[in-house]
Design a protein around this nucleic acid. Structure first.
Lengths: 348, 348
DNA sequence: CTGAAAGCGCTTACAG
DNA sequence: CTGAAAGCGCTTACAG
């Protein structure tokens, strides 16, 4: 409740109301022991009556005090994958009593740079970033000592704990499985290889071909789609060819959804031979589409939790070792065509 | 870059480095005119060299200065609907130079109350909330003058600009359309009617029945599912009955997805007569499922933008009128069964 | 155009 | 157990 003058009550207002010094109020608020029960009770009553809330900005100004803020910069908040990641980070950070300052970078490095600069200006204790690129603003000298945790994508030269997904391994193994099953023409739909995960997933795809001694047909490779619409267009192109692929590796959820849309479009449905989809990332309803799909699933929320935990360990001084890189394992889900499959087999 | 003592540079560090007073540095930083070009240039050089960043917490401590923070409390960040809303708010708030402090309430009123209290302690300029309930902590006397914008759901007694979706109207009209098309047994899958949107959407459903003089079969009404799994279970129950409904109104995306899952499960697919789905909220791949679906679509990102704009208008003093309530219109998408329908008809 | 003084709301020593 | 003094990093008057 605001005072009669319309201003928020301060620690002085409370002190005057309770008839004690500001220090006593401060001690009660921070839960210190050395306050007599009577004064403590009087302060508490005044706080409640005045609707006083401690000004965290003022508190954190004193040296040794922390802002209680973690800055999170994400390439696209509205992508369900990153929304899950954010929720996981929120869980862990919130439980530590801290708050989350967020911003969507829209895969724009300049926006990311500005955002991070603002976060630091707001005295965040640490930064969790899904980096749009690998530029100067993420290097140690630009961060001025603010701890950094990178999620999903690594940045060369950054001094940062990094949480990755087993992109290369899972892509390699599942591509190898398709090749072993006899597929010889496998299409590739992914983001640009300038994106860290894009490159890694393509590398797994490429290496599986090399190791199997099967030449990769560059005419079937499309690396450059970051949204559903462009993925759908590219897939329709593939489907319309005289000699279309028998399987398609979709390197993220947006590409997979685009591929599904193309497959279910009227013209494509006339096809008789089913195309096997391999999707890196799970997506809603994948298991009930009636299409043969293999999903490389991983827990985005857990990735967010893990990133936040690594951050907290740094902040609480538990982690004094050099930056670590952790790879989250993946889980394989297989759905054969027509109807819903209950028997999703777990692997890796 | 940190100074030699490992501490961040302050305005004093910069002043000493540039050989000017702190005030001159402050003037340059805030872009004031009354500084000679020479000094201004020297200050800028020192700022760059020292890697100085203004401490926003300290700056905002002075009366008349604003924190530049907006607090956003959302029931579930990972729901794609709210993730979109958040992105819309981020767009508008970010463009105003402010930052977003966020938290997921998980539909828990206590968590919401704590979160809002923390936001206010951090001196947010305003609050954007998708309220989990309608308790004291959202009433004017609890907010101490912090402006509040409510999104998706209204709260009685709150002094807040409110952005709603046309829940009642759209539910009414589309239910009426189903009844006019001859449906007499329409199932209902929704969240609890204690949730604001849950009640409004059910009201539209109920009133359409009343006005059409058709009795609503309570045995077909399930209001209490807020996640996909429970919606799927309830839908399977409905489908397993001797006399199942011919259409089902799903009052949000989670219930619709659950319904789709149930419809596509092996046993249910054996059915010959298709069940028409009416979904309040769009969801990914709805148009390519090959099921007869009517979608009541609305733009969550625009809802987020609108909420943020209303907040900014309050903050910038443009809006001095009493709180407003705005209803966002909906758009109707119709997909008939089997295959993908290009001809989505727009309406309302 | 430039700067010395005071104070925003809080907490850290230090004194009793 | 309690409180007066000083200062965190900045900006608002006020003085030159």
């Amino acid at each position: 409740m605001a005072g009669a003058d319309g201003r928020q009550p301060t620690i002085l207002t409370v002190a005057a109301h309770a008839g004690v010094s500001p220090m006593t109020v401060s001690r009660v608020l921070s839960g210190q022991k050395n306050v007599s029960p009577e004064l403590s009770e009087r302060v508490r009553a005044s706080v409640a009556e005045l609707g006083y809330r401690r000004n965290e900005q003022a508190r954190s100004l004193r040296p040794g005090q922390r802002s209680g803020l973690i800055g999170v910069a994400i390439t696209n908040i509205a992508n369900p994958y990153y929304a899950e990641l954010l929720l996981g980070a929120d869980e862990v950070v919130g439980a530590s009593g801290r708050g989350l300052l967020i911003g969507s970078t829209n895969e724009d490095e300049d926006r990311e740079s500005t955002l991070i600069s603002k976060f630091i200006g707001r005295q965040v204790e640490g930064l969790i970033v899904v980096p749009a690129g690998a530029r100067r603003h993420l290097l140690p000298q630009a961060l001025g000592g603010t701890p950094l945790v990178l999620a999903s994508r690594a940045v060369e030269g950054a001094r940062a704990d990094t949480v990755l997904v087993d992109d290369i391994g899972a892509s390699y193994e599942q591509t190898a499985a398709l090749l072993a099953a006899g597929h010889r023409r496998i299409g590739y739909l992914g983001t640009a290889t300038s994106v860290f995960t894009g490159l890694r997933r393509f590398d797994g795809f490429r290496m599986a071909h090399e190791d199997a001694g099967i030449e990769l047909d560059q005419a079937l490779v499309f690396a450059g789609q970051s949204d559903v619409q462009s993925a759908e267009r590219v897939m329709l192109d593939l489907l319309g060819r005289r000699n279309p692929p028998t399987a398609v590796f979709c390197a993220n959820n947006q590409n997979a959804i685009g591929a599904v849309r193309a497959l279910r479009s009227s013209t494509a449905r006339a096809r008789t031979d089913p195309i096997h989809l391999l999707s890196f990332d799970n997506f809603e309803l994948a298991d009930v589409l009636g299409l043969p799909i293999t999903i490389i699933d991983h827990d985005a929320r857990e990735l967010g939790r893990l990133a936040a935990r690594m951050m907290l360990e740094r902040l609480e001084g538990t982690a004094t070792q050099p930056p670590r890189t952790v790879e989250l394992p993946t889980r394989i889900l297989s759905f054969v065509g027509r109807g819903r499959d209950i028997d999703a087999s777990a692997g890796v």
